[in-house]
């Protein structure tokens, strides 16, 4: 049956409509979790608020379990699900740049739009910065193309790299997530802040 688009069960336009609805849902959850506050987002780096970690990791493990069970029931062919190609150098570099921007600006790309939508001026400036970054990257693409495309690893899955089944890897990830939640809450108690 699934995934819906590669199996041509829905048209491209329906796909965009679904993406639009899911996008609004995503924004709603971001705002409802308080992600439009840059202080809350930056909190994960200082340990006084780890709600970002908890929300995103919960989302990840729920989606992971959903896909694995859909595959188990024969509702979805996991081989047809798009996996991002891995370019190791750009992943590391991008992670560092993204992390630096996150800690300085207090937003990640999604939450900045969310916060701008409720009128946060710092978020609007963040978005301007985002577009400046996009502009520099695209205009200077020939300069960093070789870095961008360096160390292409194909479409690896973590569980295949380690050599364990995907179900067992899922269980390990769930346990790791809960361990991080527990640590996060310990950190919240250890580095409390009155008002942010």
């Amino acid at each position: 049956m699934g995934p819906l688009l590669p199996n041509e069960l829905i048209s491209n336009n329906t796909n965009f409509l679904l993406a639009f609805i899911i996008g609004i849902g995503f924004g709603f959850v971001l705002e409802a979790s308080g992600f439009s506050s840059s202080r809350k987002l930056a909190g994960v780096f200082y340990g006084y608020d780890t709600v970002v970690l908890k929300v995103f990791f919960t989302g990840a493990i729920v989606a992971m379990l959903g896909m694995l069970f859909f595959s188990l029931f024969g509702w979805m062919d996991l081989n047809l699900v798009y996996i991002n190609p891995t370019f190791l150098t750009s992943v590391i570099l991008g992670g560092v740049i993204m992390g630096a921007g996150f800690i300085m600006g207090g937003f990640c790309p999604g939450t900045s739009v969310c916060a701008a939508a409720i009128g946060k001026i710092d978020a609007m400036f963040f978005i301007i910065g985002l577009f400046i970054g996009i502009f520099i990257f695209t205009e200077g693409y020939p300069i960093w193309e070789h870095i961008y495309k360096a160390k292409f690893l194909g479409f690896p899955k973590l569980n295949e790299l380690i050599g364990i089944s995907q179900g067992f890897f899922a269980l390990l990830l769930i346990i790791a997530a809960f361990a991080m939640f527990w640590l996060g809450e310990k950190a919240e108690k250890a580095f409390p802040r009155e008002e942010y």
Binding site: L65, L68, F69, L72, S165, F168, L171, I175
Partner: peptide, 11 residues
């Protein structure tokens, strides 16, 4: 759920 998915074979 994680235990179940770890125990069953992949489809």
């Amino acid at each position: 759920l994680g235990l179940i998915i770890a125990a069953v074979p992949e489809n």
